[in-house]
Design a binder for these strands. Structure first.
Lengths: 221, 221, 221, 221
DNA sequence: GATGAATGAGCCTTCATTCAT
DNA sequence: GATGAATGAAGGCTCATTCAT
């Protein structure tokens, strides 16, 4: 599996030029928004705080994003797209066997670029706000459905190829919600276990579902 | 299994007496807070909205709860306690075998009094707000640890009694995060599946972990 | 003619009670809004300025009026109603002859309670803002039409009773726009003439329209 | 009477050359300001909106006019000068008799180039803003005084030549404020009468003042 | 207990103005 | 000349909190 390259550069200590290109400024602000959502949650994420994290004035944030609502929507778009590219890249790099594909998808969700406290918290901030649910559906519904359908197809291929007799829908859902549940744990627990342990836990569950595959030799690297 | 009785009465159409007992007023306000968290999310839940739902003035809400922060803390206490009583009651009513206890605990989490859109949304509202994480830990950390330890003990008993060789920590965690992941699904999906299907999904996963138990005959009733 | 009594009490030096009745507060704020419109114009009238003039916090202004837009609408309602009561009271107190009625209506428009710098400027602030035109029509259109129709009827009565052969529409319009034009002068000129001179000017114009009436003996007193 | 030629060209669909002469750019921006004042009113007229109407960037608007305040002042200068040229041209083209001069002045004020919704609204925007009153006096006071003195002189000539015995000040004022009052009507009314009807109304009033002149044969052409 | 007037901190947003390119 | 990124003052509005009644 090839990890997706980081989509935006990390902020450097070098003094940025006073005026930046439109795209670079927007990426910088979106990253600051993710950090703010993670640190302060949805309700305390303010334009002023985002601007301060990006080292610019609040006016400039709105100059680039028009409104706070739009900023949040574009931030959600960004992490959704980042997530989609991550798993699709991992899937493309995996072999043709369904077991390799499942493994690739699981590993992708715990990859360092994705399974970051900030990223997880940002997701959770959107999940936790009922008001953002229509926004979430509009921006992520299709992606989530695509992920799910992909996983269902792979589980069906496991049945066809290896003689399992699972309900593909339910099996795919189990894999997905195990990952999500572990993500939630990583955020919620005061002293969470490691990402590696989370990965091992999903693998344990997956191995239970497909006992003749996913031998214990695989680790997250 | 005996379902835990509802801890607070549902709001009736009958106008409440102008002067209610302290406890009844407080319960009424807490229920209104849960509804507001579910309907409007953490960031849009206001004292005024809670008061309107409870049919009283905002002044009275703060008279009873001192501050909004305290109101939210007590609301969290309430649902945490409600949740604790629910699973402990279910566990007490279950038989002595670990498989019966696991089944009771799972069923309890999908019981109608607990697995309500409002309840789930309220939980999620707290999870999504990083600012409330210390609060959450302070109020729910002990409960969550107790639940987890209980589940670990039961899983260890499954090993001892029935010859399974699982890591009890990891197995207990799997059962717990499957439930949480399904809860998240129920809230996040635009058109979620039924609670019964969610229950069946956990049971499928549990059955995979303990293949010689949890036969398909059990339904959520 | 009996001058309409002032509809709201002038602010006194006596320290007002910390909390006032709803109506008295609202009247106080509306008067402050009129003053602000007169002093600063539409574009510089802010909620904060109105609040400062009323000696209260901006929050309280919005507590009573919900929004700035609504405050302006209610202020317009207020002066429109004040104006309507003023001329209708004057008309009711006038005799039955159309010449007495015309005289009463003209005098009413230059009465001290109406023809105030603040009142005139407030009207002009609404006229000058295209954005407020729909608001103006919605709130004042009916009143203005009523005034105009009344004047048309009186002019028709002048024809019928005294043998004039004017177009009643045009004559009524002339009387009305002479008054409005003089109001505009009183506001626009750096060193305007007196209200009495404005009144005499309208009377001169009216006398020209009805040469056998409105002898020079009438003054505004 | 010869109508004053339009002082600035109407905007054409043809894209203007990227670099225009200084004067042409300034005229273009001033015309855009008039339109913005008319469409959006004083309080909603922004540099950005003016720039958009002129098809240039807001930076360029301020490059040419230094500040918004100065832009508004120059716009006022422009319409004041346009107005002055309009009536002075009309007056110069009129005959030597005072009755011809009065007629020419009245007609000039309802000429198509002057009595435009945009022009009227722009005037009204300035009148309605008390803050702009010093500006108005500084820029238009002399013009207005000149107009008034001219009209007073003409009314005095009417007396001398034709045996009327009016107060020239008051008569001149009546003619002027009738025109202004009708302008106000044209802007304020939801469904105003035509400009021609407004002109006829002034003529009716003028005829009443000078019964032996201004026979009904004259129309606005 | 209970209400609702009152305050003020803090939010989102607009917009005139500056200035690097 | 010309653009548009960038700033920051100021405005409308929300809402937790206080407090007189």
């Amino acid at each position: 599996m090839t990890a997706a390259p980081p989509l935006i550069e990390a902020p450097t200590d070098a003094k940025p030029p006073r005026t930046q290109s439109r795209d670079s400024r927007r990426a910088q602000v979106i990253e600051a928004t993710i950090q703010s959502l993670a640190d302060r949650g949805f309700s305390r994420t303010t334009v002023t705080d985002v601007a301060a994290r990006a080292g610019i004035s609040h006016g400039l944030v709105l100059f680039h994003f028009q409104s706070k609502e739009n900023l949040l929507a574009e931030t959600l778009d960004f992490i959704a797209e980042e997530y989609r590219i991550n798993w699709q890249t991992a899937l493309a790099a995996a072999g043709d066997t369904p077991e390799a594909q499942i493994l690739a998808l699981i590993k992708a969700d715990f990859a360092p670029a994705i399974c970051t406290p900030a990223r997880l918290s940002a997701w959770c901030a959107f999940w936790g706000e009922n008001q953002s649910r229509p926004l979430y559906q509009a921006r992520c519904g299709a992606n989530d459905a695509l992920y799910n359908n992909t996983m269902v197809d792979i589980c069906a291929a496991m049945n066809a190829l290896h003689g399992y007799t699972h309900d593909p829908e339910r099996t795919a859902r189990l894999i997905r919600i195990m990952i999500e549940g572990l993500w939630l744990d990583l955020m919620t627990l005061e002293q969470p276990y490691s990402v590696a342990e989370a990965y091992e836990t999903v693998m344990t569950g997956t191995r239970a579902l497909f006992p003749r595959h996913f031998g214990a030799g695989e680790t997250i690297a």
